[in-house]
Design a protein around this nucleic acid. Structure first.
Lengths: 223, 223
DNA sequence: TATATAATTTAGTTATGCCTAAAAATTTGT
DNA sequence: ACAAATTTTTAGGCATAACTAAATTATATA
């Protein structure tokens, strides 16, 4: 059994690999809020367990085994988020913190039972895809809200899940995955977005918009 | 926040206080499967946090604060057992092991939501009382099955929860809390009990019977 | 291509937390 | 009161996981 810290490192390496290319010790350390030397230490430990590949100064990569474990933990996390949300009514801005702890301790049996209860879901309450039990991640195609233009209609696909204040803010506009909205105006010079959500207007700043991903984009210039 | 080990010590002290009188270092150590020196060490640590009272060579007692924490953990454990059983269908011989881990990590919010979902229950799947959120333990009066005589009818109140093989054995007879049965015969010389459960006869050995507690005992010599 | 800068690794330290064996202290039983 | 049993103290082990400082290696640029 891996320690919680080791699991967190694997999960972080997976996420960093997914978003950018090479995962350097420094980037990993920054992501986990530890010093680079600490990351080097854990990388050596994970390498000795054949969970990562690593050559000095060349960044780190998950092995197939390491990737499987990372996906398993991400699966736990997202299933838990959805389960807590749907079965126990935990507010969507609170599920991340709960899942962050529980993801390391639930059994495979409980995982399978939650999965069944939820009807084998493919996305968590923030729209992030839930890997299936074989580690296959459902693919979605979404673009950042910051790429939208005036007059476009779209559907929220996913929002960043780690800042609960942001989630509460989005919730106050009813801006959840699945919500449709139309871009009324994009203010010039990197300005905010004015959008229309079911008849209600809302102003969304750039920094917030960066955390929102959408799909089903259509041009609907007519009001 | 207490460590898991510290919480386990508090829980164990509570259970030992409940069953017998004085909790000596040796008894506690044996119960937790550690050496007496380890127990002494933890007792000192708990004492420094005002969770136990202790005078050298005189055994250990929970303070009010320590007792409250012990009851909180026991509440977590038993609520979890019932929740896993009812909401997720985990078999009753498996819920103890799961709860043993989760009891240390669930939040108060999740605890409260499980409690609400379950309708503020007072007993877990093995019949053990669930302390309420103020630490009040529902009182029940039950007697060991070994005290029963021929011809008595009773209802299973509680069974020991820590041996899953025993639980599967009882399950094979449908002998759950709430199950009614009649004692057909008590074999002499500390022999086994022959009982009738809804028309099915079963033979229950002394060692098993010691782990079963019953109430609603009535004399019903007539067949 | 040399050198300055940045990133990474190594080595050693700190801190936590729980455990044990052996020796010393204390209590208990007869 | 003495021997036996129990408990405590002492001293140390092991594992995890973080840190700092110094050394090493890579890279960027002049």
């Amino acid at each position: 059994m891996l320690t919680q810290a080791a699991e967190d490192y694997l999960k972080s390496i997976y996420k960093l690999e997914e978003k950018g290319g090479k995962v350097s010790t420094g980037i990993l350390a920054e992501y986990l809020d530890v010093k680079p030397a600490s990351a080097t230490g854990m990388i050596k430990k994970l390498k000795s367990m054949n969970l990562v590949s690593h050559q000095r100064y060349q960044g780190v990569t998950l092995t197939d085994t390491g990737k499987a474990i990372a996906l398993e933990i991400i699966r736990h996390h997202r299933l838990l988020e959805l389960y807590l949300f749907k079965a126990l009514g935990v507010p969507w801005d609170g599920v991340h913190e709960e899942a962050e702890i529980l993801e390391h301790v639930i059994s495979e049996d409980v995982e399978a039972r939650m999965d069944e209860f939820l009807g084998y879901p493919t996305a968590d309450p923030h729209g992030s895809p839930i890997p299936d039990k074989n580690g296959v991640v459902p693919q979605t195609q979404s673009i950042p809200m910051t790429d939208l233009q005036d007059g476009q209609t779209c559907v929220v696909a996913e929002v960043s899940d780690s800042d609960s204040a942001l989630l509460r803010h989005l919730g106050s506009f009813n801006l959840y995955p699945g919500t449709e909205f139309r871009v009324v105006e994009v203010a010039p010079f990197e300005g905010p977005f004015t959008i229309d959500i079911a008849g209600q207007q809302a102003v969304i700043g750039r920094e917030v918009a960066k955390n929102i991903f959408v799909n089903n984009v259509e041009q609907t210039d007519n009001v």
